[in-house]
């Protein structure tokens, strides 16, 4: 097996419709899980920053999710969830604690001097979020997304390899393993890396655009 054979195999795969269908299948689910985790994580962190009880309640639950090995999760979740949507749930569960913890840390680290200023000048909550919290939490959120995006692809694909949902990238990897088809294995690994990087760049770009447009509103 040489790099040349991997490139040749990849060029063959690109020309098949199954290749693109597999990418779409996994991308939709893994990205879906990631985006859901981002939304839920931001909401939970925002509420937990105001209500200490929720913060205390969530801490052990999220710590447990972080500590459980991904493989155990996958097998456990397979009992209740059909394998088609397994990667979505797994990427959601893996990314949620990362987003939650970082956004909460960002909110906690918001400049108290600016918050006092907003209190004195009676700045409303929406303007406070837009002009004070957003810029202060953004670096933490971006770091969390960068880590989360890597994790969601790793865990999502691992879930697909174990659950073998039909038409997924994980199934292709599983087949490559069963038939000892190393060029296929490497070709699909390259595809996962490229799709994951492209999604990360696109997501970060969209986040930057949204923040810029919200701040300039």
């Amino acid at each position: 097996m040489s790099p040349f054979s991997v490139v040749r195999r990849l060029s063959e795969l690109i020309q098949t419709s199954g290749f693109w269908q597999s990418i779409c299948f996994s991308l939709v689910r893994i990205a879906g899980g990631f985006l859901t985790a981002v939304i839920v994580g931001i909401c939970l962190a925002s509420i937990a920053s105001r209500f200490g009880v929720l913060r205390e309640l969530l801490a052990p639950a999220l710590q447990t999710i972080k500590a459980i090995p991904v493989a155990s999760f996958i097998i456990l979740v397979l009992i209740w969830v059909p394998s088609r949507n397994l990667s979505m749930l797994i990427s959601f569960l893996i990314v949620l604690p990362v987003i939650y913890a970082n956004v909460l840390k960002g909110i906690d680290s918001t400049d108290t001097q600016l918050l006092e200023m907003s209190q004195v000048f009676r700045i409303g909550i929406s303007r406070k979020i837009r002009y004070i919290y957003l810029s202060q939490v953004l670096p933490y959120f971006q770091a969390a997304c960068s880590v989360g995006l890597g994790l969601c692809w790793k865990s999502g694909i691992a879930a697909e390899v174990i659950g073998i949902p039909s038409g997924s990238i994980g199934e292709r990897l599983y087949e490559a393993k069963v038939y000892l088809n190393t060029p296929d294995l490497f070709a699909w690994t390259v595809v996962i890396v490229v799709v994951s990087l492209a999604f990360e760049k696109l997501f970060m770009l969209v986040v930057k655009r949204i923040v810029r447009s919200v701040e300039s509103m």
Partner: peptide
């Protein structure tokens, strides 16, 4: 109340104009 603090307490990423219009 309106206040000038000992520190400037401006939003560093916002322009002077936006900082003023914020309040």
């Amino acid at each position: 109340i309106s206040m000038v603090f000992q520190e400037d307490r401006l939003c560093e990423n916002l322009s002077a104009l936006t900082n003023i219009r914020l309040v």
